[in-house]
Design a protein around this nucleic acid. Sequence first.
DNA 1: ATGGCTGCTTTGAGCAGA
Length: 258
Amino acid sequence: MKVASWNVNSLNVRLPRLLEWLASAAPDVVCLQETKLEDGKFPCAEIAGTGYTAFYVGQRTYNGVALLVRDAIGTATEVTTALPDYIDEQKRVIAATINGVRVIDFYVPNGQSVDSDKYRYKLDWCSAATGYLKNELARHERVVVAGDFNIAPEDRDVHDPGLWAGQVLCTDAERAVFRRWLDLGLADSFRLFDQPPKTFSWWDYRQLAFPKNRGLRIDHILLSPTLATACRASWIDRNMRKGEKPSDHAPAIAELAL
DNA sequence: ATGGCTGCTTTGAGCAGA
């Protein structure tokens, strides 16, 4: 079972690239973030035409998440579209049970800057998410948490750690959240394997950041212990950052022997 | 060394992303 996560930065704009990528990469489950679409405008028919069924919760302009499930892998049950016990207008969570695996798709708030209300919101949101993950891990043996975490977990996930030190995405508090989630028993699938240094998942559109590889690794796929044992590979498809109209994020992918 | 790009917005210059 191949699981992928991709922040598309507008599904409207990215739909042609998404359809090509579904055909070429053939993931079984895809977690999308930043669809920026109201539910009534979600392109169900186009996606169904490629052999996937979509589950989604969105809003216009901002946020929005979706799960795409390859029809051949089975159907999704127990679909939920929010953190429980946390009131939030913003559509940032979707989860479902697919082929015996609980798949949780997060679009963690960006936080903007450390002195902003949005940073406070990010940390509050993450606290609620911690409780949610703890419960989900108690209820399910096989759990995937995938998405845009907006956290670069370590300095090696940052092109220039000195430049980013103390900045949003790299603060101690955000990194502590990431470690807390690992402490719940989740493994960062990417770090289960030897990886090329300076592997990133996001590059700014400005300043030739991608050709200069000035990026961050902020898109992650975490696995519960059983799934970590079953994980055969985990990588970032940086080729998706190239070409016409790329998202500023590249997909993260994990291959599970299930 | 500001912002430098992209997508979105009751189409405009401003917000947000990261």
